[in-house]
C-alpha cells in the first residue's frame, strides 16, 4: 500500500507516495538515492544508518517512513557545515576511519553530540557512540577524533589535555 508523505530532506522539500511499510532508511537509499546511510543490520543494532531527524540522531532503519511526515531529515550528504567538516577531517587524520562503512553514521551521531555538548569528555563520547559498531578500529581513535574536532570547533572551552 502506498501513502502520501511530505518531508524535508537535506533542506529540500519532498512530496509523494511511499510504501507504507517502508523504513526511513530504505526510503532514503532506494527512493532518493541517498546511500550515505548504510544498512549494516536493519535492526537498530549497528548505527551505520544514523541520520538526523529534526536534529536528533536516530537509527533510520527503525523509523517507519510515514513517521517522518512533516519532519526534517538530514543525512550525511546534507551535512556540509563547519562542524561536520571538522569531524570528518579529524576522523581521517587520527585514523578513526578504516573500511568506512560505519563512518557516515558515526559522523552524524558525533555531529549531534557536538550540537549538545561543546567539548564532550570520554564518558559522554562513549555513551553517545555505544550504539555504533565498528569492527576495524577498536574505537580508541573514534573518541580521539571527536575530542580533536571539538577542540578545534570550540577551542575556548577545550580542556588543556585535548
Amino acid at each position: 500500500m502506498r501513502q502520501m508523505l511530505k518531508v524535508t530532506v537535506n533542506g529540500y522539500p519532498w512530496e509523494g507516495l511511499v510504501k507504507s511499510d517502508q523504513s526511513l532508511l530504505d526510503f532514503l537509499r532506494d527512493e532518493l538515492g541517498l546511500t550515505g546511510a548504510k544498512k549494516g543490520c536493519d535492526g537498530g543494532e549497528c548505527g551505520a544508518c544514523v541520520v538526523l531527524l529534526d536534529g536528533r540522531a536516530v537509527n533510520s532503519c527503525l523509523i517507519p517512513v510515514l513517521d517522518v511526515n512533516n519532519c526534517e531529515v538530514r543525512t550525511i550528504e546534507g551535512l556540509q557545515d563547519e562542524q561536520t567538516n571538522q569531524l570528518q577531517d579529524a576522523f581521517v587524520s587520527v585514523g578513526a576511519v578504516q573500511c568506512g562503512f560505519c563512518t557516515p553514521g558515526m559522523i552524524v551521531a558525533a555531529r549531534a553530540l557536538l550540537a549538545e555538548v561543546h567539548n564532550p569528555g570520554e564518558e559522554e563520547i562513549r555513551e553517545a557512540m555505544v550504539g555504533h559498531l565498528c569492527r576495524c578500529t577498536g574505537y580508541t581513535r573514534i573518541a580521539a577524533a571527536i575530542k580533536l574536532a571539538a577542540s578545534r570547533i570550540n577551542p575556548e572551552t577545550a580542556g588543556p589535555e585535548r
Partner: peptide, 16 residues
C-alpha cells in the same frame, strides 16, 4: 599518512 580515500568514506561518498 592518513587514508588517501578517508574523506570519501567520511562524507558518505564512497560507493559500496
Amino acid at each position: 599518512i592518513p587514508l588517501i580515500d578517508g574523506k570519501e568514506k567520511a562524507t558518505g561518498r564512497m560507493v559500496f
